[in-house]
């Protein structure tokens, strides 16, 4: 099982943003995408997750092995923490949610409606969803937004355990996670030529 991306070009709103992207990710490894805001990290991740088609290039990934976590956590405010997690466990056909509750210190909050959680607690719940999916490939978009130092450490522990179990993680993030074993790919040099020459956005917006 591996994720291989070759000569990938992606577009956002019909405008090419990144082109010629190549990388490989094998089981047990993590890759962090870096680059300035608006460069197209989210677009790359959505393309790999299968939510939009690539402009060109090839992605070899069995989508049945992948789970995606976006900026939004997909939580229902009126359902409790436990109900939210149990729903995703049922959708992905996996059993217990105990490991996920423990992994992100949510056990004390399990009966609380998700709408009554703080931003950081919501994010922890969103990340705990990854553990109940049981999928080996994690595609994460800015997973550490609004997390405090302690919660980031929790997240890094979860990623390390996931990698040790033969999983993979591909993530876009700005902060230094302290995840030293992860490879880092700066997508800046892959900016699409059309996007480079055309400064329409900066001039008019």
């Amino acid at each position: 099982m591996e994720l291989e991306v070759s000569e990938l070009s992606v577009a956002r709103g019909g405008i090419p943003v990144l082109e010629g992207l190549n990388f490989r990710l094998a089981a047990g490894h993590a890759l962090i995408l870096r680059g300035p805001n608006g460069i197209g990290k989210t677009t790359v991740l959505r393309t790999i997750a299968g939510l939009q088609p690539p402009l060109a290039g090839r992605i070899s990934l069995d989508r049945e092995t992948m789970t995606y976590a976006a900026h939004a956590d997909g939580l229902k405010a009126t359902l409790t923490v436990e109900e939210n997690l149990s729903f995703w466990a049922a959708v992905f056909g996996t059993g217990g949610i105990d490991a996920a509750l423990d992994g992100f210190a949510l056990r004390d909050l399990r009966a609380r409606p998700a709408g009554a959680l703080s931003a950081g607690q919501k994010r922890r719940l969103g990340l705990a969803r990854l553990l109940v999916t049981g999928r080996p490939v994690w595609v994460l978009d800015e997973p550490t937004v609004s997390l405090d130092v302690e919660a980031v450490a929790m997240f890094v522990r979860a990623v390390r355990a996931h990698l040790a179990g033969g999983g993979m993680a591909l993530m876009a993030t700005h902060i230094d996670l302290g995840l030293d074993e992860a490879a880092v790919l700066d997508v800046g040099p892959f900016r699409a030529r059309a996007a480079q020459e055309d400064h329409f956005d900066e001039v008019f917006l």
């Binding site: 997750a49 939510l51 995606y68 976590a69 939004a72 997909g74 229902k76």
Partner: peptide
């Protein structure tokens, strides 16, 4: 709005 449609679309369903 809350992003669960994206997550459902990438789920096994």
């Amino acid at each position: 709005e809350d992003g669960s449609l994206d997550l459902l679309a990438t789920s096994p369903l």
